[in-house]
Amino acid sequence: MNRTRIQAVAGAALVAAVATGCGSDSSDGAGAGQQKAGDQAVQQVDSAIQQATQSSPVTFSLEKADLTDQSKQTLATIAKAMQGNPVRLKVETHGGYANADMSKTLSQQRAQAISTELEQAGVTKDRIETDPKGNEKAQGSQALATQFSATS
């Protein structure tokens, strides 16, 4: 009889340990909830970026790194969407020159202009990742547009 009770208690303890993960896994209820909240924040910011850039893309004039007033407004909208959450922003810029060195330099200048504008709008530098592509992914008129993505 005692043996049956011990086996029942041990079995119940095993089921409880498996069900709770013994607390040794970082994906417990609180961790999973935090991850889900982080994912939701990324989705919300990404959605705001897509809406802002569809109606008013951040573009540059040919061979220039100056932001237009319209692009500055779009960046202010993106910065506002990033307030109150830890979401990071990846900014991909292009240069458009056939010459790789010239294109890389222009792409870096464009990335810096965007980063500076976002910082002035309240986004801390550590939340902005610039990825100046030069002429690796886009050339000509395609290189005038900037791509944004939210990350955690």
Rank of each mutant, 00 (worst) to 15 (best):
R3H: 06
T4I: 11
R5D: 15
A8K: 12
A8T: 11
V15S: 13
C22P: 04
C22W: 04
D28W: 01
G29N: 11
Q35W: 11
Q35G: 07
K36I: 14
A37N: 13
A37S: 15
G38K: 06
Q40D: 13
Q40W: 10
V42F: 00
Q44R: 07
A48F: 00
Q54E: 12
Q54P: 01
S55H: 09
S56T: 13
V58C: 06
T59W: 09
F60H: 02
F60I: 01
S61V: 03
E63S: 14
L67W: 02
T74W: 03
L75I: 14
T77P: 00
A79F: 04
M82E: 11
M82T: 15
M82H: 12
Q83E: 15
P86F: 11
V87Y: 03
V87P: 03
R88G: 13
R88L: 04
Y97N: 05
Y97M: 07
A98Y: 04
A98S: 07
M102E: 05
S103C: 13
K104D: 15
Q108R: 15
Q109N: 12
R110Y: 00
Q112I: 10
T116M: 01
E117I: 04
L118W: 07
E119S: 15
G122W: 13
G122V: 11
V123H: 12
V123P: 12
R127D: 06
R127T: 04
D131M: 09
K133Q: 14
A138K: 05
G140D: 10
Q142A: 08
A145V: 07
Q147S: 12
T151L: 09
